[in-house]
Computed example of a mutant assay.
Amino acid sequence: MIEIIAATVEDAIKIESCGGERIELVSALSEGGLTPSYGTIKNVVSSVNIPVNVIIRPHSKNFIYSEEDMKVMIEDINLVKELGANGVVIGVLTENNEIDNSKLERLIKAADKLDITFHRAIEEVNNIVESVKVLSKYQEITNILTSGGSGRIEDNIAVLNEMTRHSGNIRILAGGGLNLNNIQDIIRNSSVKDYHFGTAIREGNRFNGEIDEDKLRRLVGIVKNR
């Protein structure tokens, strides 16, 4: 699986035409991704045939959410379902940097039959492998997006492999610093089969850069010919 971040309808169309297999739809890419607008979700979903997973993140302060935040997130999840997207991308932690099981379960319940990706909030937990074990108990969670912790993703291959070993039916989605320079090492040395790209496929590797279709096609070719 090759998942690419999109922020606009134009992004989404380019991603599909270049061989991307799934979209993570966000706004405010420079903030790590926030929930996109109703209109963006609606028009992206109707413009492509590949799955669209929508990030549900109301602010970039942290991954600790108040009851008011939860109301917003649940309402946004309900809108995503109504608009026909494939899934949601979520993550919620306690003040002690652990998975917030009670709030996570409420979001899972709201998502119902949607695919669920637990996003890079997992990078901030105290023990990433133990947190994967916690998440593996939820059959509804389909993916965990991760770079294997802090630092460069290529230095975290051993952690990615350990996460894969304990993830059960959840697919580990390698992302966060994945690019043309390190993708072959990740493919060759890790047990991960799914890959997520953000700024690596944009002009100048900038958050606000346009998607570089040549770079994207090259990355797709590397992954598909591994």
Rank of each mutant, 00 (worst) to 15 (best):
L178R: 07
E210W: 04
I23D: 04
H196C: 08
N126K: 12
E130N: 07
V52T: 09
R152G: 00
L83A: 13
T199A: 11
G176V: 03
I5K: 03
T117K: 06
F207G: 02
I186V: 11
E98N: 07
I157H: 01
V159M: 14
V125H: 03
K71I: 11
E10N: 15
G33D: 11
R217V: 08
S66H: 12
E67A: 12
V52A: 10
N101E: 14
N43G: 01
T164N: 13
C18R: 05
V223D: 01
A7W: 00
T8A: 11
L104Q: 09
L216F: 11
M163D: 03
I187G: 02
E210R: 12
K137R: 15
I15Q: 08
L216M: 15
S136Q: 08
T146R: 03
S147D: 04
T94R: 04
N62W: 09
Q184M: 05
S66W: 07
V45M: 08
G39P: 05
M1S: 14
I15Y: 05
A28C: 14
N43D: 15
I172V: 15
R120P: 05
I55D: 08
R152H: 12
G221L: 00
I187W: 02
R226G: 13
P36A: 14
V125R: 02
Q139Y: 09
G33R: 10
